[in-house]
Write a protein that binds this DNA or RNA. Structure first.
Lengths: 106, 106
DNA sequence: CAGTATCCCCACTGATACTG
DNA sequence: CAGTATCAGTGGGGATACTG
């Protein structure tokens, strides 16, 4: 059954911030740690670092360290990460659909 | 920004079991409470009931009580719930893609 | 059959402080 | 700048028992 696939996706995308992080990487393509912090004000450094590590471990984001002082680290989607975009888009489309049906229905 | 949409989706689909439940309703169309229990052995009654209430409250699943003894309650996707299917499919496709790229890559 | 009601735990998350 | 270390709290979720 395809339920295995569901579990896979769930395991990889679970976590309060991952989809939000992916969304920002999706629309801006390359972001530094501090830029992600600014983009998602509610997230703590610890959580940002942790979720980025998870996403990196799962092969969804690419972490690039530029050997400089001060340090510069950039995050971008990997190839397979890019391919998540259509699915995230479908989710957003559905959200829009739902919102309009909610408004139209009253 | 479309980030609002992300938050919406997150709020509605959050919870360890919702997407799994939706997947089963998606493939079987109508299921009784006990059928969902069998389909998702790892879920507890409490969680199943709770997540179904959430999904019902958010207008994604339709709960139908048949006045009988013993009780019979059926769950199905609403109209807007049905429209989530393409997005879930995209997620599953991505999972398959990812799995094959993982296998092929070694 | 289809749920509630209770109790309880620990994993996720946050806040703060520190560092290469 | 880009993290790690440490401590502490909360509530999401599990186990069990009970009910219309």
């Amino acid at each position: 059954m395809a339920a295995d696939g569901v579990e896979e996706v769930l395991a990889v995308l679970e976590g309060r911030w991952k989809i939000l992080i992916l969304f920002h990487l999706f629309s801006r393509s390359v972001l530094r740690f501090s830029e992600l912090e600014k983009a998602i004000p509610a997230i703590s450094q610890k959580m940002l670092a942790q979720q980025l590590r998870d996403l990196e471990r799962d092969g969804i984001v690419q972490r690039t360290v530029h050997p400089q002082v001060p340090p510069k680290v950039e995050y971008a989607l990997t190839d397979i990460g890019q391919k998540l975009c259509p699915a995230l888009d479908a989710l957003l489309e559905w959200a829009a659909l739902r919102k309009s049906s909610l408004d139209g229905g009253r």
